[in-house]
Amino acid sequence: MNKILQSMLITVMVLFTAGQFSVHAHQVSTPQLTSEAAILIDGKSGQVLYEKNAEQKMYPASITKIVTAIIAIEQGNLLETVTVSENATAADGTRVYLVEDEEVYLERLVQGLMINSGNDAGTAIAEHMAGSEEAFSAKMNQFVKEEIGAENSNFTNPHGLYHEDHYTTAHDMAMIAKYAMENETFREIAGTKEMEWNGEGWETTIYNHHRLLWDYEGTTGVKNGFVSQAGFTLVTSADKDGRELIAVTLKAPTAEISYDDTIKLFDYGFENYYTEEIAEDAVFESTDGTEYQLGAEAYVTLAADTNMEKEVDDEFLVVRGEDGSVLLEKELIPLKDSSETEEENDELHKEEDAEVEVQQTNWLQRILSLFNL
């Protein structure tokens, strides 16, 4: 009797365990995070795959430096020499130990800012590009709003040291990171694991403070941060099979939790979503037979095992998921038929012939004037 019961118990346990693994393998499980705010977006489409308090205003700490770095790269000359001020050398927190009147290339300051999180490098960049931290902060706020569309952020300094009016949101930081990572120079610096630092005040090897560059395969950047009021903040990009995701976690109680939450987000995104490209030369036809093209490639991110539906609506391409939600809405360019193209070419040739005729007439008149004819 005991053997029969034992055999039945083993069978039930095996079936139960197999059932657990089967459910887990096909389950789309939403990550449970400890960080107070977080977001996960696709790096190409920009679509939000997960969010938690993503619009809540939070203190960013050193992830602020993403904004400082991309402005320096896009609006500055990286080969310009920056003369370090006494004010920059007195910056609080993490530094690259710049010396007053030291001359440093702007590119090297951006590297020190992003790799070693040098607050002194941030101040030196701000003073070089705008004259002061205050003036540079105004440039930062204008830049993120006008160039990126980050409407819910306000920066009062270039490095992220605490100020009550220095804030952002997880959503804004994801958009900022997406924009910055599209710049190849920024991407290279943000993904640098280590480099030699030979300054007047410090000669050493600096190591990137973002631990996932070593600990999570496919990580490509971007920046971590901490001040007591902000907790641990983290912005990370990771690539898998040509797909890049961007995760932001804000106000984690420990660095370990910020990294764990980020890994959960990446695992969730890579396992449960895929991104498709819509080619710029793809042709779409409206109900009246008019043909259109995008003019530039676009990307759409979908849940695994689902498809998208495309339709032309009033000269816009509308892409919907299977649940009817709008994933993309983009203006289209009407295609011209061959007769219109031929007419335009004929008109262009006529204009060119007329211009040549005028030039020839002017040339002939100048020749005749030489002989007083």
Rank of each mutant, 00 (worst) to 15 (best):
N2K: 15
K3E: 15
L5Y: 13
M8W: 07
T11W: 04
M13H: 06
V14H: 04
Q20S: 09
H24V: 15
A25S: 14
V28H: 12
E36V: 04
I41G: 08
V48C: 10
L49D: 05
K52E: 14
K52W: 03
K52M: 14
S62R: 11
T64L: 02
K65E: 05
A72W: 06
E74F: 02
E74Y: 01
Q75P: 02
Q75C: 04
G76F: 09
G76C: 03
E80I: 03
V82P: 01
V84M: 03
V84H: 05
N87Y: 11
A88D: 07
A91E: 15
R95P: 00
V99K: 13
E102W: 06
E102P: 01
E103R: 10
E107V: 00
Q111R: 15
G112Q: 13
G118M: 07
T123D: 10
I125N: 11
A126L: 03
A126F: 01
A130V: 08
S132L: 08
E133T: 14
E134Y: 07
F136R: 07
M140P: 04
F143Q: 06
E146H: 08
A150Q: 09
E151G: 00
F155N: 03
F155C: 04
F155M: 04
H159Q: 08
H163P: 00
E164F: 09
E164C: 05
H166P: 03
H166S: 00
H166L: 05
T168N: 11
M175L: 14
A180V: 00
R187F: 13
E188G: 00
E188N: 13
T192M: 10
N198K: 15
E200P: 00
T204R: 03
T205R: 08
T205I: 12
I206Y: 05
I206K: 11
Y207N: 12
R211C: 02
Y216E: 05
T220C: 05
V222H: 01
N224L: 04
S228E: 14
S228A: 12
F232D: 08
T233Q: 05
V235I: 11
V235C: 13
A238P: 02
K240N: 09
D241K: 13
D241M: 06
D241L: 05
L245C: 03
A252Y: 07
A252N: 13
P253I: 13
S258K: 07
D261Y: 03
K264T: 04
K264C: 05
L265R: 09
G269D: 01
G269M: 04
F270A: 10
E277N: 11
I278V: 09
I278A: 02
V283S: 06
G289P: 06
E291S: 14
Y292K: 03
L294H: 01
A296Q: 12
V300R: 05
T301G: 06
M308P: 00
M308I: 03
E311N: 08
D313M: 08
F316P: 00
F316H: 14
V318F: 11
V318T: 11
V319P: 01
R320G: 00
E322A: 06
D323M: 04
G324L: 07
V326E: 15
E329R: 15
L335R: 07
D337A: 03
D337Y: 10
T341S: 02
D346P: 00
E351C: 02
E351H: 13
E351A: 14
D353Q: 14
A354P: 05
E357N: 08
Q359A: 09
L370P: 00
L373V: 15
